[in-house]
Simulated scan of single mutants.
Amino acid sequence: MSVGLFAGMNTCIKLAEGHGAALGEILFWRQFGAAVLVGGIVLAGPGWRSVATTRMPAHLLRAALGLTAMAFTFMTILALPLAEATTIGFTMPIFATILGALVLGEPTGWHRWLAVLVGFAGVVIVAQPGGGGFPIWGSVTGLIAAFLTAGVSILLRQIGKTEAAMTTVFWFSTLSVVPLGLIYIFVAKAHPAETWSFLIGVGLLGGAAQLAMTSALGLGPVSVVVPMDYSSLIWATLFGWLVFDTLPGPATWIGAPIIVGSGLYIVWREHVRRQTETTQAVMA
């Protein structure tokens, strides 16, 4: 559900921009809609005390990093066809592996380092540098977005040790509204009803997708949930064809399986590593 909702959100992003909305407006409505949705669920359910926190600096850092990653992600969606933008985003586990080794000192064997190299080879195939298939700067913003999103995932590992998932989602959404609201004052403009429907769709679909992903991670192990994200390429291809009359080029059909394969292998090796550590701890 999360993957399908995020794909719908990405479609609304392109439609909103195509109907005159600026990037700053799209970002504001994405977070404002999510804040209203999450806030309503908290108010109707466990109440405000359930999202109380003593780690506000960590949430502020997560909001700053997450907003920057989101901005680059949206720029990529606007610059590239949906399938290509989605495929570039699949490099996130590759960057997470690199950051996990460098920042957290996580053990990373040659299996995963080889998967990292293979994944980047797939990116080169999809991006076609110098080939003129699509704007190269769209590939660059996509890689920056994936790198920053990987940084968010590393930060969330630390925050998740003491904070509930709903608390993290709540503070990310609400804290983001403040700086985006200031930006919105300068970029807001009148739109026809159709454009407003796309902007509202970005917020509601994004918020619902975020909640669905949070629920999924709460119901199943990461090694099972995360690979489901790769099915977003199916949705992106479908929406790209039905809404924008575009299909992935030959390079994407070749490079996407390479990137997806490397990402899945990284997830599998991480699962094996954690199983080994658990077994050793039990035996000890």
Rank of each mutant, 00 (worst) to 15 (best):
L175E: 00
L175I: 02
S176R: 03
P179I: 01
P179G: 01
P179W: 01
G181T: 01
G181V: 03
L182Y: 10
I185R: 09
F186G: 06
F186Q: 15
F186N: 11
A188D: 08
K189C: 08
A190V: 13
A190N: 12
H191W: 06
A193E: 14
E194D: 15
S197H: 13
G201E: 07
G201T: 05
V202Q: 01
L204W: 00
L205P: 02
G206F: 00
G206Y: 00
A208H: 05
A208W: 03
L211C: 09
A212V: 07
M213S: 12
M213I: 13
M213G: 04
T214A: 14
A216L: 11
A216M: 10
L217I: 11
G218T: 07
G218Q: 07
G218C: 10
L219H: 12
L219E: 13
L219I: 09
L219M: 15
L219R: 12
G220I: 10
V222E: 11
S223N: 12
S223I: 13
P227V: 02
P227I: 06
M228Y: 15
D229P: 10
S231D: 09
S231V: 15
S232M: 12
I234G: 08
I234M: 10
A236H: 10
A236F: 05
T237P: 06
F239I: 07
F239W: 12
G240R: 01
V243D: 05
F244L: 07
D245A: 15
D245T: 13
D245N: 14
P248S: 09
P248K: 08
P250C: 02
A251P: 06
W253C: 05
I254K: 04
G255V: 05
I258R: 03
I258D: 00
